[in-house]
Design a protein around this nucleic acid. Structure first.
Lengths: 213, 213
DNA sequence: CTCGGTTTGTTCCCACGTTCACAAACTCCT
DNA sequence: AGGAGTTTGTGAACGTGGGAACAAACCGAG
């Protein structure tokens, strides 16, 4: 489920707050979801709660981590070291959660050799060797849209089966390869869409609630 | 609908490829969705297609842009000029689609005054004045998680009603305010989850398809 | 030991979104 | 003009996910 990471973060928050146990109601509100939904999600992993008591924070934290696969180490390569690639390479949220950036690649020779987040940017041609050496399973694409599909194909060819794509293009991959897309400008466009509808609603029904003649 | 931006990008691609008209099938495959779904989505905006012919690329492009609200100009403020804030400020995908970054804010005095993407980083205290002056409706939060809720509250207080949140925390907002969350590490965790399941499947059924004894 | 209060796990139901399938409508060719 | 071919728009079935409600199970007090 896509909500497990949210639950895990909420649990970490409760843990830091000193909670040894928590009810589904508490955890649900911390995660911003319905308590019934949370219980149903957790029950898919197994019966880790105690009726009349709740969930043991520490135990549930471990179980979710294990379910997601955070108890093991995930080597990651980032391709495309522009503004976004820089930010991703430096993002502490990755390394602190079991993800280890093993290489930064860029096709531009001018970028190669520069030091970013303690790693030297290497040539995109080294992808195959790096993936084989570190058993990389996850690749991140932070290139311009024009290069994304060819980078994606190369990743798949090298054996990568999970790709996080920040380039604003739909990528086609063979079956068995997972893609998740993060499209920054789409997010803003969706907000603008809702904002426009809110503005239109305001125009017909102003703050006082009276419809203008 | 959250798919309109995807359709719009696919249309732009077809436009650059020189297509004057396109069928729902073509557009759907370019956008990576089912053609029936695409037709139903578009029919919600109005009857912009011609039976037996398809959709006029240019006309449909304009209609979707208008529906999303991209024909108008959306001023945006970005709060938190760390690695991610830098990348967002420099991201060309925003400015090229009707979004105009009018201010970069940071609570850290050391950041204030530095030039990022041609804009001087200003103090977070100026939020109210900037929002009022530029009629800002959209805010972007790129701060650490610990500061996100207070920044969010300040944005709402200043009149912002649409927020794009990159901080790894669930934010609570009053009704009428829209939040979209982009959680980078969650995306990786979801990939890891699927990757782990794929690895487990491989272990039971190796490439040859034979179950080990 | 028993009883009341509490919380999980689960079942049922509803609503939404997706997909199939087809009628309506348009173009082109003869 | 008429028919064949094509493509949109939509009505109906389908499946999936969410929410409310309830039974089972646990704790603590007396």
């Amino acid at each position: 489920m896509a909500r497990l990471p949210v639950y895990l973060r909420a649990l970490n928050g409760l843990h830091e707050a000193g909670a040894g146990t928590c009810s589904s109601e508490e955890l649900a509100s911390a995660a911003g979801v319905n308590s019934a939904k949370l219980r149903k999600d957790l029950s898919h992993l197994g019966s880790y709660g105690t009726r009349g008591v709740g969930y043991d924070v520490e135990y549930l934290r471990y179980q979710i981590s294990r379910e997601i696969g955070l108890t093991q180490d995930w080597p990651v390569v980032i391709v495309g070291i522009g503004n976004l690639g820089h930010a991703l390479a430096n993002y502490s949220g990755f390394s602190s959660r079991g993800f280890r950036t093993v290489a930064l690649l860029d096709a531009d020779p001018a970028q190669q050799g520069t030091l970013v987040a303690g790693l030297k940017v290497r040539s995109f041609d080294e992808l195959d060797a790096i993936v084989a050496e570190h058993r990389v399973a996850i690749g991140v694409i932070a290139t311009p849209a024009s290069a994304a599909q060819s980078v994606c194909d190369a990743m798949v060819g090298a054996g990568i089966r999970s790709i996080l794509n920040f380039a604003p293009t739909v990528l086609s991959v063979p079956a068995g390869v997972d893609i998740r897309m993060v499209d920054l400008s789409s997010e803003l466009q969706i907000l603008a869409y809702h904002e426009q509808r809110k503005a239109a609603a305001d125009a017909t029904v102003p703050p006082g609630g009276v419809v203008p003649a």
